[in-house]
Amino acid sequence: MKVVEKVGKTIDEAIELGLQEFGVLRDEVTIEVVEEPSKGLFGLIGSRPARVKLTLKDNPVRRVDRLLKSIFEAMEIPVDFSIKEQDQILLVTMEGADLGVLIGRRGETLDSLQYLINLSINKNQEQRRKVVLDVEGYRQRREDTLQKLAQRLADKAKQRGRSVVLEPMNSQERRIIHTALQGRDDIYTFSEGEEPFRKIIISPKK
């Protein structure tokens, strides 16, 4: 599906057919002319059509853009989003009137969508890319909340001299908590249980 060979009266016509088949624009493919067209003698004998080979360029930004657009359309949620590529990370920033639904309880929907997009974008790819979805600074806000929660619960564990068990979180959120408490020497943190119910335990140091 990534390479297509087309025949046309002219090179342009052959290219156009290939683009239509992929459903993409000209800058999304590399074009190789396999055979120049020839009018032949008096345009009758020995005329040959043009033959071109189009190879679809890997364009993860475009793929993420297409996929998200069709998903939001099917969800009937109007979303404005932009995609920034940085190193191997594609950061998608979304804005819209009714995006609470897209975040879900504790970001559950946002994380699910992000997970699915990542799977789809990296399907059969040599180079892996990470896609991060964010709604109006939600990720940063969540990180702040988790850091504050971590400090508060660490104080509680110390005060009571007992372990505090947090609720189940995904790996990114657990990492935020572990990192936030790394510097403290009065408590230590570890995780227990199986995904998706793995949770952090904060214990006082004896």
Binding site: I71, E76, L102, E108, T109, L116
Partner: peptide, 16 residues
């Protein structure tokens, strides 16, 4: 895990 993610996205879309 993937089925769960699909369900979660669909559930969000269905809240309307």
């Amino acid at each position: 895990r993937i089925a769960r993610a699909i369900r979660s996205v669909v559930k969000a879309a269905a809240t309307k």
